[in-house]
Amino acid sequence: MKIQFQEPAGDFTDGIEVIHRYHQSFFTRGAQLLALAQAIDQAGLNEERALRLAELYVFYRQAGPLHHLDEERALFPLVVGQDLLLDGMLERLALDHEEIEEAWRVLVIAVHEVLERRQVPEKFLEQAARFERLQREHLIRENEDFLPRVEGLLASSQRRRAAAAMASMRGLKPGLT
């Protein structure tokens, strides 16, 4: 059975809405990852948990890099240089991306060991929890501090342009999934 990535963006008509949809999806999948990692740590791996872990792996493998590109290539350039506070936020968010990506690289090694060798590494739960925490804290920072500020700065034409760039990075036309 081949697991397909399900695009969380919905449509690509508004770049800010694409970001919000990804954030909601990350919050949901993060809670699922944490619960699953705890279940695997406590009860081991069975077919159902293996399938759920594989589905989460496919999601994060695709969604994480796409989301960071959406922000760094389509959204951040529209607001860089607006003011010093915003520029500081952009720098911090980009650093968060690097930290989240490193935590993912570490977790992927453990996920592969679980799925391919059916062995649960000693630090699997700790690695999953660290990745989820970094991602969640980053999303909260964006949702509470960054996005409300950006929403007030961007015109609807800029939001559409960001969405078009995001769609293009996926080989899609704006407005489509």
Rank of each mutant, 00 (worst) to 15 (best):
P77R: 06
E47Q: 14
K123T: 14
R29F: 03
L90V: 14
P174L: 06
G88P: 00
L176F: 14
E122A: 11
E72H: 06
Q127F: 00
A50S: 11
M169A: 13
I3E: 02
I109Y: 07
E101C: 00
L125V: 03
D14L: 01
A103Y: 00
N46P: 05
G44D: 04
L134D: 05
L66Q: 12
D41C: 10
D96I: 01
L176K: 12
T13V: 15
D70E: 04
I3N: 07
S25V: 05
I100P: 00
R149L: 10
R21I: 00
R149Q: 14
F12S: 13
A37K: 06
Q62I: 01
D41R: 15
E48C: 12
L107E: 02
R130F: 09
Q6F: 10
P174E: 02
R160S: 08
Q6Y: 11
L84I: 12
G175H: 03
G15E: 01
F146A: 01
R130P: 04
F146V: 04
G44Q: 06
G88A: 09
A54S: 10
Q6E: 06
A155R: 14
L53F: 01
W104V: 05
G10E: 12
Q4T: 15
A128R: 10
Q82F: 12
S156C: 03
Q135E: 03
R49I: 06
V111D: 00
A50I: 06
P77Y: 06
L85Q: 13
I16L: 14
G30F: 07
V114Q: 07
L107P: 06
R130N: 11
L45K: 05
G171R: 05
A43E: 15
H23D: 10
R92N: 14
H97P: 02
V80P: 05
Y22C: 07
L95E: 15
V58L: 09
A43G: 09
Q24P: 08
L86K: 08
H138C: 02
S168Q: 12
M169H: 14
D87A: 09
F26H: 05
A94E: 11
R149W: 14
G15F: 07
G10A: 09
V120I: 11
L176A: 05
M89R: 07
D14K: 00
Q82A: 10
Y60N: 08
R141A: 03
P8H: 13
L172G: 01
N143R: 04
A9K: 02
M1G: 13
Q119I: 11
L85D: 10
E137I: 02
S156T: 07
V106H: 08
D87G: 05
V79P: 03
L107D: 00
R170A: 02
E47N: 08
R73T: 11
T28Y: 14
P77G: 04
F27R: 14
E17Y: 01
